[in-house]
Amino acid sequence: MTTTATGALLRRDGLARRRDPLYAVSLAFLGLVVLVAAFGPLVAPYPPDAIDFTAIWGSPSPAHLLGTDQLGRDLFSRLLLGTRESLIGPLALLAGATVIGVAIGLVAAWNGGWVDVLLARITDVMFAFPGLLFVVLVIAVFGKGPWTAVVALALAYAPVIAKFTRSIALSELARPYVDAYRVQGASAVHIAVRRVLPNMTPALLGYLVVLFGEGLMSLATLSYLGFGAQPPSSEWGLMVQEGQDGIVLGHFAPTLVPGLAIAAVVVAVNIVGVRLSERLGARA
């Protein structure tokens, strides 16, 4: 009797903690964004590069839900079609940065001593060098284009991830279960990659989700500056830049629509990332 009562109480408490509207809304919004990235091309009423000189700087209307830009292209279609490119870029850059950063951080934490010092110096140098400047340098050498921007940003993000990985790896490696695996005769690589890394993923995952927002912003910034996506792409950062001319003419939609899209995704990703790391961290 009493046990069932406390059980119910516990369950209700669990439910109360799970009810978190901001998190739910953000998650639902991100789900929608992913759907748009996947199926946007099927839904978009116009091709992204359909120029219509009769409808330049058009206001929202039944024909053009969000209006048109300086070439009379449908903003709604461009927004939908730009989603995929705007999301895949940060995803790819994060994947690259994670592989490099986690490897560096784990090796540094595991070995300690001079290896740790050496890797710390290298990451510090990369840290000290402004990320965007580094990226512009890489682009200056290898030419501009969306993939150069992704690779350059991946290199710029790697030290951040390396530092974070190192710090959580240090506390993870201090746990006695790592010694237990050593006593069992498992190899260093086996322990680090197969045993310790999976125990770190919850903390790492939350951090990476937050970094995704930053990556999206950085890539959009690069495209805005003309170093990333190139016309006629409808990547959101590039859309903001192309729509800029309209501001002086009083047409705000061409900048506002992609700008808001970037902001909304970044904010939602941050909310989800922070809540996620709280939850996963609490469980560990």
Binding site: Y177, A180, V183
Partner: peptide, 26 residues
């Protein structure tokens, strides 16, 4: 090498003080 490490592990095993941290929580 792996064989030597494992042979050594079979000589001596350890139970640690902290029952909360010495098991892999996953």
């Amino acid at each position: 090498g792996q064989a030597a490490r494992l042979a050594r592990a079979r000589q001596a095993q350890m139970v640690f003080q902290d029952p909360y941290g010495s098991l892999d929580r996953r």
